[in-house]
Simulated assay, not measured.
Amino acid sequence: MTAQRGKDLLLKIGDAGDPESFSIIGGLRTKTLSLNTQMIDVTHAQSIGGWRELLAGGGVRQASISGSGVFLNGAAASTVRTVFFTGETRHWEIIIPGFGTVSGAFLITNLDYAGEHDREATMALALESAGEISFVAGGA
């Protein structure tokens, strides 16, 4: 993967329709996708040299997404607010240019609104995976 513009990383929320369509969430200025696996330590008295041993494929996997920026329209702001207050999981897509698309069900776990007296109002949100995550290689 060659260097890409950070602004091209997109975060989209599904409309829960059939077929589902996705829309971009606001003008996010920063976006982060973290993929994690809990490790299971299986080290024992005969572990070579006393080095830790881990069980391959044994841990719980999770994906976390965070972003901050501004809402560009009322529809995006309303969708995020409604999904947060109802506590529903929605399908989201994270498009990473030159890498691919990560998608799956996520729950909004944090939603912040902020503003300074001489600046625009901003928002920040955090999502946690709520099921299997898929990855499709490719992208611009």
Rank of each mutant, 00 (worst) to 15 (best):
G87D: 07
G69H: 13
T86L: 11
G6V: 04
E116G: 07
L9Y: 05
L33M: 03
A130E: 06
A45D: 11
S78H: 06
S47M: 11
L107R: 02
I65P: 01
E120I: 13
R90K: 08
G59A: 07
D41W: 00
I65S: 00
D112N: 11
L35F: 06
D112A: 10
L35H: 14
L107E: 03
D41M: 07
V60E: 02
I40V: 14
T43F: 09
A76K: 06
L33N: 01
S103Y: 05
R5V: 08
T30Y: 13
L28W: 14
T2E: 11
V42Y: 07
G50N: 14
H44P: 12
F84L: 13
D8R: 14
Q4G: 03
L10P: 10
E53W: 12
A121S: 09
A137N: 10
I94R: 00
L55Y: 03
I25A: 00
S23W: 08
V136H: 15
T109Y: 01
G100N: 01
E93S: 08
A3K: 11
F99P: 04
P19G: 04
L9T: 01
R5W: 11
R90P: 09
A56D: 09
A76F: 14
R52N: 12
T122P: 10
G59E: 04
V102W: 08
I108Y: 02
M123I: 07
V80T: 00
M39C: 15
E93N: 14
I40W: 02
A137E: 15
E116A: 08
T43M: 10
I108C: 02
R52Q: 15
K7Q: 10
Q38Y: 02
V42R: 15
A114R: 09
T79D: 03
E20T: 04
R90I: 13
G115S: 10
F106D: 01
H44F: 04
S68C: 08
G6R: 09
Q38K: 03
M1R: 04
L125G: 02
G57N: 05
L11A: 02
L127P: 00
S66Q: 13
L107T: 03
K31A: 01
V136S: 06
T109I: 00
T37R: 05
A75K: 09
S34N: 14
Q62R: 13
G115A: 09
G98K: 00
D118M: 07
A114Q: 08
